[in-house]
Design a protein around this nucleic acid. Structure first.
Lengths: 112, 112
DNA sequence: GCCCCCTGTCAGAGAATACTGACAGTCTGG
DNA sequence: CCAGACTGTCAGTATTCTCTGACAGGGGGC
C-alpha cells in the first residue's frame, strides 16, 4: 500500500479524512496504542456515534484499521489500530496526483 | 517558514485547504507557473467568484501567495504563485502537532 | 430477572460550505 | 463614449457535513 504516488482520489480521501480536528485527535490517540470505540469515546470525551462516524471515515481512507474481535468468552470488541502511512505533500506530488482525479460528471465527452 | 513541526492549527489549516478537488487542481495548475484569477478561471473552467474563494483559502493557509501588481500602464492584475511547502504526514507528525490544537471552547479549566 | 459493558444504526436538527448571478469599480484602447 | 480587460464583493440558495439522543441487539455476571 506504500505506493510512491497515490491516485488523486486516494490523496483527496486521505486529506479529507485528516482535515478535521476530531480526526487528528483520534489519530494522535491511536498513535499511543490501539483502542476500541467506547473506550476512545470516553478518553476523547466525545459522543460515541459521533466518534464512530469519524472512525469510519478514517477507516475508509485506510488510515486506521478496525478489527472486530470476539473474545473466547463471546463478548466482542472492535479494536482500532493506526495504519502505517506516510504522505509527503508538495506541489510536485499534488501535480502528479491531480490528473488522476475523477470528476463526478466526467465521462469522455468532457472537452467536446 | 519551513519549521520542522507545524502547530496543530497550521497543520489543520493546510489539510483543510488541500482537502478539496478544486483546490488540488488549482495547486497543480499553479505548479506549472503563476497565473491570475481570470485566466485561471478560464483554464480550469470555473466560476470566477468561486475560484476567488478557493484561492483565498489557499492563501490563508499560506499555500499560495497573491500579489496585486499594477503594471506601468496602470492596469492591475493579481498574480498567484505557489508558496514552497513540504508537509510530511505520519502518525508521528500528527501526534506531535495535535497537543497544540486550540479548541474553540477551551480556556484552561479544561480537565478540571 | 436485572444491570453493565459492548457494537451498530437511525432520523432529524443544526451549522458550515460551496456555488451562482449580479453589481460596482478601475484602467486601456479605439 | 463605448467595449473590453481586470479585481473585488454580495445575497441567496443548494448541498453537504456534523452532531445528538434514542433504539435494537449481543453477551457476562450476579
Amino acid at each position: 500500500m506504500s505506493r510512491e504516488t497515490p491516485t488523486g482520489d486516494e490523496l483527496l480521501a486521505m486529506l479529507a479524512a485528516l482535515a478535521s480536528p476530531h480526526r487528528l485527535r483520534i489519530v494522535a490517540a491511536l498513535a499511543e496504542g490501539r483502542s476500541y470505540v467506547s473506550e476512545l469515546a470516553r478518553r476523547l470525551r466525545m459522543n460515541r456515534p459521533l466518534l464512530y462516524m469519524h472512525l469510519q471515515k478514517l477507516e475508509a481512507a485506510e488510515l486506521v484499521v478496525g478489527t472486530l474481535e470476539t473474545a473466547p468468552d463471546g463478548s466482542s470488541v472492535k479494536w482500532f489500530d493506526l495504519a502505517p502511512f506516510a504522505l509527503t505533500l508538495t506541489a510536485q506530488t499534488i501535480a502528479t496526483a491531480v490528473p488522476t482525479l475523477t470528476v463526478p460528471g466526467q465521462k469522455d465527452e468532457e472537452k467536446q
